[in-house]
């Protein structure tokens, strides 16, 4: 029987951080391109959603921020960190709120994350580029965020019951 100790939380956080970095790298290898910049699977978000359920929002936030900064330094550059950070923080706040209501399954939580992540990035793009022209991308980004988010939520809803730690009576 797994107890929710601090040590086990740390272990899960480390596991999820490593996994999210690998998933971020794997995602860059998958040719998933619709010709619209910003449309991506967001596989790394999988870890954040799972951590949100099995540990809590503090642990998930820590891993989310570390993931963005580390993957930014490993595979990207500073501007990528700023874009990702805006998306990550906004999506995290929204996912936590949706999760707290307890009225949505991981699919709904992840869907919210996908949509708000894209919106956060677009907001930064508008501020950085100083043009409102990219607002034309909003519908495409909402749809792609919702669909990829729902897909990842579906994957997490399959993964969560398998994890020993997850209490099935609580959610899902």
């Amino acid at each position: 029987m797994d107890t929710r100790t601090g040590t086990s939380n740390v272990a899960y956080m480390g596991l999820c951080l490593a996994l999210s970095l690998i998933l971020g790298y794997v995602e860059s290898l998958i040719p998933f391109n619709f010709g619209i910049p910003g449309v991506k699977l967001g596989l790394a978000n999988l870890c954040v959603v799972i951590l949100l359920y099995i540990c809590g929002w503090r642990e998930a936030l820590t891993v989310d921020l570390l993931r963005v900064i580390l993957s930014g330094f490993l595979f990207g550059n500073l501007s990528m960190i700023i874009y990702s950070l805006a998306g990550a923080i906004l999506s995290f706040v929204c996912m936590t709120l949706v999760h707290k209501t307890g009225r949505f399954s991981p699919i709904g939580v992840s869907l919210t994350g996908g949509v708000t992540h894209n919106m956060g990035q677009l907001t930064v793009a508008v501020l950085v580029l100083g043009t409102t022209r990219i607002v034309y991308y909003v519908p495409a980004l909402i749809i792609s965020g919702a669909l990829t988010g729902a897909l990842l939520g579906f994957i997490s809803s399959l993964v969560l019951p398998v994890l020993n730690r997850f209490d099935p009576t609580k959610l899902v």
Binding site: S105, I107, G108, L111, T112, P139, A146, A150, V172
Partner: peptide, 20 residues
């Protein structure tokens, strides 16, 4: 109920995208 809520959320997102 959660799954119904999920579907409502997805529909709302698609609707919002369509309106925009």
């Amino acid at each position: 109920r959660r799954y119904v809520n999920d579907i409502i959320l997805l529909a709302a997102c698609l609707l919002a995208a369509g309106i925009i």
